[in-house]
């Protein structure tokens, strides 16, 4: 159908008014940000101890000097994170599916998953690390890994999978039962309904909380240094600091962690927007 619409004078006036309003809002936002930010910066810069603080935490020379050691340590964080994250997602997903199984036959599996989550969600990570890291090698079993990094990863996976299990379970249960009924009515088996209908919807809904746990995992990946063998970014910074009492290496480590987690968040946001924005649309 041909369409030769020209905005009426009144509509043009409305559009102009809306443009003015949004411009005004933008100006207010920019101005208030500048004022608040400026005040904060001024407060810090005028603090009596600023010179010393800058020298202790933000020394450029010290940063350059400590960078190689901290970066090398950070590489361990990245490796531990990547391996643990994959295992955590797999274990968490499997446990979540076990927890959502219905029927008396599956009672032992459900109970196992429930006890597992209860225990490992409740135990402090540092305790699990020490138990696995020092307890398992002490058993002297053949074939059991003794490398502290591997044991550290196992401890991380044990703890984080418990959190992730609950995240996945919440997602699975948020999919309306009628979806499963529709899938079953088409002849899909129980596992097929889970795989092709329930999980794709569930996973998309839990991407943001999942990312919370993964971001937390990147930081806790450094805790395996308590087992002694691995020198991760934070431990490396600690060593650097110990020689000079200058805390800049910690700041360097912090920046590296940010460089890892912020892009992770942005990429995940983009991916989930692409596949998840339309309810029921898209595919996994």
């Amino acid at each position: 159908m041909s369409d030769t619409w020209v905005p009426s004078a009144r509509q043009q006036e409305r559009d102009a008014y809306r443009r003015r309003q949004s411009l005004q809002s933008l100006l207010i936002a920019v101005l208030s940000t500048l004022v608040v930010g400026g005040a904060l910066i001024a407060a810090v810069l005028s603090a009596p101890g600023w010179e010393r603080t800058r020298e202790t935490f933000f020394s450029w020379d010290k940063a350059v000097e400590s960078f190689p050691a901290v970066l090398e340590g950070f590489w361990i964080n990245v490796q531990v994170f990547l391996v643990s994250a994959v295992c955590v997602l797999v274990v968490g997903l499997v446990m979540a599916m076990l927890k959502t199984l219905r029927g008396p036959v599956f009672w032992p599996l459900r109970a196992l998953a429930t006890v597992y989550v209860d225990v490992f969600r409740g135990l402090p990570l540092i305790l699990v690390l020490l138990l696995v890291g020092f307890g398992v090698p002490a058993l002297n079993l053949t074939g059991v890994p003794t490398d502290p990094i591997v044991l550290g990863c196992i401890a991380l996976v044990l703890t984080y999978s418990a959190y992730v299990t609950e995240v996945f379970r919440a997602g699975i249960e948020s999919v309306h039962p009628s979806q499963r009924a529709a899938a079953r009515s088409l002849g899909l088996s129980g596992p097929q309904s889970m795989r092709y209908v329930v999980l794709p919807q569930a996973v998309r809904r839990v991407v943001p909380p999942l990312l919370n746990d993964l971001a937390s995992l990147t930081k806790d990946s450094g805790l395996i240094s308590v087992l002694g063998a691995a020198i991760d970014a934070v431990r490396a910074a600690q060593i650097e600091t110990a020689t000079s009492f200058n805390f800049t290496p910690y700041v360097v480590a912090g920046v590296l962690f940010l460089l890892l987690t912020i892009p992770l968040t942005r990429i995940t946001d983009r991916v989930s927007r692409k596949y998840g924005a339309v309810p029921g649309g898209g595919h996994l």
Binding site: P7, S8, Q11, R14, R18
Partner: peptide, 16 residues
């Protein structure tokens, strides 16, 4: 996107 709606004689489509 254009046009006027008035309720009890008052324009409600006005952004104000």
């Amino acid at each position: 996107d254009d046009g006027v709606i008035e309720l009890e004689g008052r324009e409600i489509t006005d952004p104000r």
